[in-house]
Amino acid sequence: MKRNTYSNEVITRYLVGALASDETERLDELSLTDDEFAERLQSVENDLVDEYVRGELQGNLLERFESSYLASPTNREKVKFAESLQRTVDRRAGAEGAKNAEQSVTHDSAVSRGYRSSWWKGTFALPKTVLWPAMAVTAFLLIASSWLLVQDLRLRQLRDRARAANDVLALQSEKQQAQLGENQIALAEKQREIDELRRTLERSGQSSETEEPNVIPVVLEPQTRSISTIKTVSIPAEADFVAFQLELEGDDPADYQAILKSLPGQQTVWKRSGIRAQRRERVKLLVVTLRTRVLASRNYILEVADPRNAGSVLSSYTFKIVRE
């Protein structure tokens, strides 16, 4: 069983119901059977609720939290408890800060009042032969302490920079862990797709053990201004699936939506959400697989959209299908 391979981000997505069903099931099981995971789940849930209370959740996660997590009355009670806890902690922190400041001021003024009169009196009562060297030593000490103060500040800055660098590294490590979790999910999704294909083939009377599905791989490039560059894809009669490999441009969401539209008229003929991109070196690739029976001999446009951003189209690819 996988243990501790789940990043906080994956657990958070689980809590707001944003994970794929097979991965959700795996985490369901762990939440009941694995002591360590059960405790971590509780801890991540507390942090999530606290972040919501402090207004630190944003975007998709905030939407999910409000629509899914807060649907449960018990979870709403958790939020109310978190608000109270936060108020109590803030109140105490404020009171302690004020108390410390007050104590410090009272102490300093009391000490300095008593000290000042005797110090001045004592100092100027000294003979000049003692007074001048004493003042010179005092001046030296003042300069030395200023120099030390500057050095201290410089070292503090260096320390802060080192800490910041350390935080960046920790963040990167966290992101890598999250990526690992996401890759596992993507792998599980692919496995599910393969299983589904196998089942379909079995249903249609073919044995998946003896015969693999016939897949036509097609590489598509983003649409340019010239319509003359349209790619022609020939599909043999025995082909079962077409796998389009799309090269993505720009920086981008984790999940994509692919929409296939017929041309002209732009009528949607096929759509799929939650497609994950794969990274090969510096290139981001998206593989979109669909059944050949969806396609007729005509022109199409395949649009890649960002489901988080109201389905705004990120890239589009035109091609012509020729059925053989």
């Binding site: 119901g17 369901d28 939440s31 009941l32 449960s72 979870n75």
Partner: peptide, 10 residues
């Protein structure tokens, strides 16, 4: 844990 599980399942 069971209560939390059924809660998460709405």
């Amino acid at each position: 844990r069971l209560v939390s599980y059924f809660q998460r399942k709405s």
